[in-house]
């Protein structure tokens, strides 16, 4: 049986024409842009031959636009999921039902992301154009979509969590954008700034290997770095990976592997964050969770402590 929360949101959001219009508009613009690039690309060459380079650029641009779209819209779409129910005074009605906190949180998360998922899936055909005109494998396109979904889930789960604990949706939105800023810019600053501050000779003095590790690990959570690392891996291009490799110039093969696959590390990181924040959200909305830690079971704990003391004496 479909998650009732998700089902309800599907029913209500498919009803209006607005979402439909936005979807059509977005797909239209994407398709038009792609079409124009392909068209002009064809006529650039006198023999109507096709420069695969253009398709690559198109692929990267399309993917980057979607990536930006996700990071910018997911917080706004998700931050009101639980606090909205609270404001509308429907949350209690949901909490007294047999639905578990987990189903409620998942239903809310997926419902808020559903629209963005629809946009991503909707542009699959356009992305596949790239595949059609050569240059990239369909599996790579799917991997890219998977990567975006993972990023969306990560941001969404954080956003849902804030939505559980803050009454006001605006607060949640702000916090998620701040966290996103930390992930995108903060990590880069954290990785690079210590290098700039430190005296170069001093850097040579300290353990270089650990410094490399620090930089590589700090960059893993960065969605932008991960995105371009995935592009590099897929197209053999040189946007971040080689840069990082040469900058770190490490002989450690494990470290090099991580740097080459930073997108994969990032996806694992996102998965872990998603799981953590979903679990935290479930805890936050469960009204009777306290009885595990306080209330009814507090007494036995105290008694146990007393018992131990007595034994010790």
């Amino acid at each position: 049986m479909m998650n009732p929360v998700l089902r309800r949101e599907a029913v209500t959001s498919l009803r209006g024409w607005k979402n439909f219009a936005v979807l059509t508009f977005y797909l239209g613009v994407t398709a038009l842009g792609a079409g124009m690039v392909i068209y002009t690309g064809m006529f650039d060459n006198w023999d109507f031959s096709f420069d695969p380079q253009i398709m690559m650029v198109l692929y990267v641009v399309l993917a980057a636009v979607q990536m930006a779209l996700i990071t910018l819209t997911v917080p706004a779409l998700t931050a009101g999921s639980i606090s909205g129910e609270r404001e509308r005074q429907t949350l209690d009605l949901l909490l007294v039902t047999k639905m578990s906190s987990f189903s409620i949180v998942m239903g809310k998360l997926l419902a808020s992301l559903a629209f963005i998922l629809l946009l991503i899936v909707g542009t699959l055909p356009v992305l596949s154009l790239v595949f059609y005109f050569g240059g990239i494998k369909i599996s790579a396109v799917l991997l890219m979509v998977g990567f975006m979904l993972m990023t969306a889930l990560m941001l969404g789960s954080i956003s849902v969590f804030f939505s559980c604990i803050f009454k006001r949706t605006v607060v949640s939105i702000m916090l998620v954008y701040i966290i996103m800023g930390v992930l995108c810019l903060g990590t880069i600053l954290a990785a690079v700034l210590p290098l700039a501050v430190r005296d170069y000779n001093a850097v040579n003095m300290i353990n270089l290997e650990s410094e490399y590790w620090r930089i590589a690990l700090t960059l893993i959570p960065n969605p932008g770095v991960a995105f371009f690392s995935l592009v590099d891996a897929q197209l053999g291009s040189n946007i971040v990976t080689r840069e990082l490799l040469s900058m770190l110039n490490s002989k450690n093969s494990a470290l090099n592997w991580i740097v080459e696959n930073i997108w994969m590390m990032n996806m694992l990181f996102d998965a872990a964050v998603t799981a953590l924040f979903i679990a935290l959200s479930c805890r936050a909305i469960n009204p009777v969770r306290e009885h595990r830690h306080g209330g009814a079971e507090r007494k036995p704990k105290k008694e146990r402590k007393k018992g131990k003391k007595k034994e010790a004496v």
Partner: peptide, 12 residues
């Protein structure tokens, strides 16, 4: 359970 104050969903 019927609470003292409650809301309903739009578009439903």
């Amino acid at each position: 359970y019927m609470p003292d104050f409650f809301g309903v969903y739009d578009n439903l």
